[in-house]
């Protein structure tokens, strides 16, 4: 299986806990014979590199340096993520089974690639705007929620790291519960759970 992971942080760029989580997952996936390509942001290291653990990393930088807010920064970075994602797709002779996108930052790229090239994606939720900025209803926050909503709407499958997050996604975004799988990183079956989601989302068999 060939998977492209979109995440705005990946070592050595560490913003929160997503970088290490995705890096661990990618390593485990490679061990399970998944070809993993990570597309991430880095303003210093750019281009393709193959890491020691066998994960191919494609780091992109924002071509627009001056920004008025995080949204404009994000919405101009996405075209570079699309360029990277499309390059991987064409280099693999149009055989990418799935995109796994972490949080809202690269939802635009995942949605565009899905609609253009027919590659399904899994939206993996680490956190939601409602929890990051509780009660904030400024247009800025509403727009981020709008992008999260689009992410849920267009996703083939959604993953949450806990039952609590799963119920929050249902409560806040009215996502059908059966579309969301819980893949807890503390569970013994973590990698197996993620692989099951990948198989089901990419049209493969759900059975292991």
């Amino acid at each position: 299986m060939r998977v492209v992971i979109f995440c705005w942080e990946y070592p050595p760029r560490i913003v929160g806990k997503l970088a290490d989580y995705v890096s661990n997952l990618a390593t485990q996936l490679v061990k399970n014979k998944v070809a993993v390509h990570v597309v991430t942001y880095n303003d210093v290291m750019t281009g393709i590199s193959e890491e020691a653990n066998g994960v191919k990393v494609f780091r992109v930088d924002n071509p627009v340096r001056t920004h008025v807010n995080l949204l404009t920064w994000d919405l101009t970075l996405n075209q570079e993520a699309e360029r990277a994602g499309a390059s991987i797709y064409y280099q693999l002779r149009r055989k990418v089974d799935l995109i796994d996108v972490y949080d809202w930052h690269f939802i635009p790229a995942a949605v565009t690639i899905k609609n253009a090239l027919g590659i399904p994606y899994v939206y993996s939720v680490d956190s939601l705007e409602d929890h990051r900025s509780p009660g904030a209803d400024a247009p800025f926050n509403m727009a981020i929620r709008g992008i999260e909503w689009l992410g849920f709407f267009e996703a083939q499958k959604v993953t949450a790291k806990s039952e609590w997050m799963r119920s929050e996604i249902v409560r806040l975004y009215k996502v059908p519960a059966e579309k969301i799988a819980v893949t807890s990183p503390t569970a013994a079956s973590w990698v197996k759970d993620v692989l099951a989601v990948y198989k089901s989302a990419s049209g493969g068999s759900e059975a292991q």
Partner: peptide, 15 residues
Amino acid sequence: NPSPDFATWVYLMNL
């Protein structure tokens, strides 16, 4: 999507 200002609207519209 609601936008805080015109320029942000442009990028959101483009999305």
